[in-house]
């Protein structure tokens, strides 16, 4: 038996807790069987293997300052993620990772930060938000703009409310559909960008959400004068190997798994312009 670490061979992790977030979304808290810490950068992802069922790429949604627990927030959209949803504490999963590029939280020091996200897209950004809040004094204004389908689909609602109650960070949540007992905003995320309070020429924007929402958000940011190379987006493509071997996630000359998933917009703008790239 080979002991050297093959990048295609998972390490074993044990489910400590599973927490229901939304009707189809849940959070797994894992620890390594080896008890080793699992350091990662905000924005990186893992390949999660469910015994016999398959492997899925899932971004890490926990706090990078707490590498002893590995946190993943997952939306059940396929057979593997449905299977993961029925995990119980004590179950073992295979983990390969962490893979991919990170949100530029270091480069953005001194800048205003605008976080634009929708749906499950908040999960890959949460580690970045934890980092920004833990190092609050190093950044200018921090704005979080979040969109969800309905008020019942708002991910991490309690945390969003907690962040919103802070005086040093502005949080705007909008939904696509609501009935009149919702006293928050109804509308699309890009509209929030027009009115948000930040200095465009000194702003770094971090975007993660459905590709169309990202496209319109980039446009709104550009109209406000945010520089193209200060806009970062997290892209989603089919990923099988996560290490640039399988070719599935190619986006022009980029491998989303190893060159991304977080890209400066300037590097992948063609993906937003050219169909079926």
């Amino acid at each position: 038996m080979k002991t050297s670490q093959d990048p295609m061979t998972p390490n074993l992790f044990q489910v400590q807790r599973i927490r229901r977030e939304l009707a189809d979304t849940f959070t797994l808290e894992l620890t390594a069987e080896s008890n080793n810490e699992f350091p990662f950068l905000p924005g990186q992802f893992n390949m999660i293997y469910l015994f016999g069922s398959g492997e899925v790429p899932i971004s890490i949604s926990g706090d990078p300052a707490q590498p002893n627990r590995l946190i993943h927030t997952i939306r059940a959209v396929g057979s593997v993620t449905e299977g993961l949803k029925s995990c119980k504490s004590g179950d073992m999963l295979g983990i390969r990772g962490p893979f991919g590029s990170a949100w530029p939280v270091e480069q953005a020091t001194g800048q205003d930060i605008v976080i634009i996200t929708g749906g499950i897209g908040l999960a890959p950004l949460r580690p970045a938000i934890y980092h920004l809040l833990a190092n609050r004094q190093r950044y200018g204004k921090i704005v979080i703009l979040y969109g969800a389908r309905t008020p019942a689909d708002i991910l991490f609602r309690k945390e969003l409310e907690r962040w919103r109650s802070r005086f040093d960070i502005s949080v705007e949540v909008t939904v696509d559909q609501a009935v009149s007992n919702w006293s928050g905003r109804v509308g699309v995320v890009p509209k929030l960008i027009n009115r948000a309070d930040f200095a465009p020429e000194e702003t770094t924007a971090l975007i993660c959400g459905p590709e169309i929402m990202m496209r319109f958000s980039v446009k709104a940011l550009q109209e406000r004068g945010v520089k193209e190379d200060h806009i970062y987006v997290s892209m989603e493509r089919n990923m099988k190997c996560a290490i640039g071997f399988c070719g599935h996630c190619q986006l022009g000359s980029q491998f989303v798994c190893k060159d991304g998933p977080v890209f400066p917009y300037s590097q992948i703008s063609s993906a937003f312009r050219i169909r079926e790239l």
Binding site: Y49, K240, F245, C246, H248
Partner: peptide, 13 residues
Amino acid sequence: FCSTVEDTTDLTG
């Protein structure tokens, strides 16, 4: 070099 992976189990699981 493109490839895919398939995860399988036997009947006993």
